[in-house]
Amino acid sequence: MAILLFDSDPVFPQVLAPYLRERRFEVLEATTYPKAAEILATASCQVVLANRFMPDIDVYAFLRRHAGNVPIILYADVIFDRMNLLMANAAGVVVRDTTAILFQLLLLDAKNKNPPAVAGGF
Rank of each mutant, 00 (worst) to 15 (best):
A119Q: 06
I101N: 00
Q104A: 09
Y19V: 03
F53N: 15
F6M: 07
R23Y: 00
N69W: 01
A50G: 14
T99L: 12
S8C: 13
F62S: 02
F12H: 08
P55R: 12
P55A: 06
D97Y: 14
T98Q: 14
D81E: 11
L49M: 13
V94Q: 00
E22H: 15
Q104K: 06
R24N: 15
I79W: 01
S8Q: 14
K113R: 14
F25V: 04
L16P: 02
F62W: 01
G121F: 08
L102F: 10
A2V: 15
K111F: 07
A43F: 11
C45Q: 03
I79K: 06
A119W: 15
P13T: 11
H66W: 13
F6T: 01
D109C: 13
D56A: 10
R96Y: 10
F103V: 08
A2I: 06
F12G: 12
R21Q: 11
E22V: 12
Y75R: 07
A88P: 10
D7W: 03
L4V: 04
R52L: 15
R96S: 03
A110T: 04
I101S: 11
N84R: 14
A110H: 13
G121W: 00
S8P: 07
L85D: 00
V59N: 02
D7N: 05
P55N: 05
L16H: 03
I57F: 08
V48I: 05
F122K: 11
P71V: 02
A37V: 09
D77W: 00
V15C: 10
A90V: 00
Y19I: 00
V70I: 05
I57M: 08
V94R: 03
L102Q: 14
D109F: 10
A117G: 11
C45A: 01
P18W: 11
P71H: 00
R24E: 11
P13D: 09
R64W: 06
P18K: 04
R82Y: 13
A50M: 12
V94M: 10
K113M: 03
V11T: 15
L106T: 11
Q46H: 10
E22Q: 14
P55K: 10
M83V: 12
V78T: 09
G92I: 04
Y19A: 06
L108A: 00
A30P: 00
N84A: 15
T42S: 08
C45H: 05
F62E: 09
A117F: 10
A90G: 01
A37K: 08
A43T: 09
L4G: 02
A41T: 12
P71N: 07
L108E: 05
I101P: 02
G92N: 08
A50I: 13
R64N: 11
P18Y: 04
I39R: 06
A91M: 10
L107M: 08
A117M: 11
P71K: 00
F80V: 12
R23D: 04
T31Q: 15
L74H: 11
V78H: 05
G120L: 02
G92E: 06
A50C: 13
L106P: 06
G121D: 01
V48S: 02
E29R: 15
A67G: 09
T99V: 14
S8K: 05
Y60C: 05
S44Y: 04
F6H: 04
N112A: 11
M54L: 08
D7H: 10
A2R: 08
K35G: 10
L102S: 12
Y19S: 07
V93H: 09
A41D: 14
A36G: 01
F25S: 07
M1V: 09
M1L: 13
F53R: 15
